[in-house]
Amino acid sequence: MLTVNKLRKSFGGLHAVDDVSFKIARGKITALIGPNGAGKTTLFNLISGTMKTDGGSIMLDADDITALSIEERSRRGLARSFQLSRPFRNLTVEDHLLLALERDDDLFWRNIFFKRETKTEKHKHLREVLDRVSLDAPLNKPAADLSYGQSKLLGIAMAMIHPHQLMLLDEPVAGVNPVVRETISHVLRKLREQGETVFVIEHDMEFIMPLADEVIVLDHGRMIAHGTPKEIQQDPDTLHAYLGAQL
């Protein structure tokens, strides 16, 4: 599904991502872990195109997407939620979901003169998605009025509803309360059952280890381990770099 080959990114003398290569298999949840500053979010930024690479390649199935714009990668099937939830401050929950759902809504003539919106059907679909992430908020609620946890859930709902092949989730449970954490855990389990491919950055080991099929470990920009959660928990490099004796 996703093949990352010898990917590099430096900021001055700091190698944020250093010669990283891995493959993500279709229909699995792959976790990306590592200490603070390991380069996890930079790697996500390189994959989603919000940062340019210094070298290496990124393949989505057979397509090389390394040189594609952010927009084009999204349209090829990359859906992403952000670590810091960033709702569009003047738009409603409904607007957010429709933005994620619709593909050609940025076309001028078609949308202004030739398109008729069938709101009832769409509302039903949007409500279903909100129910799947247990977000109990009216569709017409301004997104700026959502709590932090609700914003996180909205971000995941947007990634789910966005037409995609691969979901990139950046620390979905960071800073949320235990109820929302459990909800997101349930959502991820459901996604796995449905055969979705999910690549997720997560700091919370208790949360991610039971959910992940595979785990990639980054440290100082380098990939130091890649395997099943059980293998990672016994990997000496990983234990030394990050996990400690707690696992």
Binding site: S74, R75, P87, F88, L91, E102, E117
Partner: peptide, 27 residues
């Protein structure tokens, strides 16, 4: 008509958070 269309919604999204709108595929 323009501002109440889905094009207007995209315009509002780009105004509010350009990078996020681009990540959603908005050109």
């Amino acid at each position: 008509r323009l501002t109440h269309s889905s094009f207007g919604r995209v315009l509002g999204a780009i105004r509010d958070e350009e990078l996020h709108a681009r990540v959603l595929g908005k050109r």
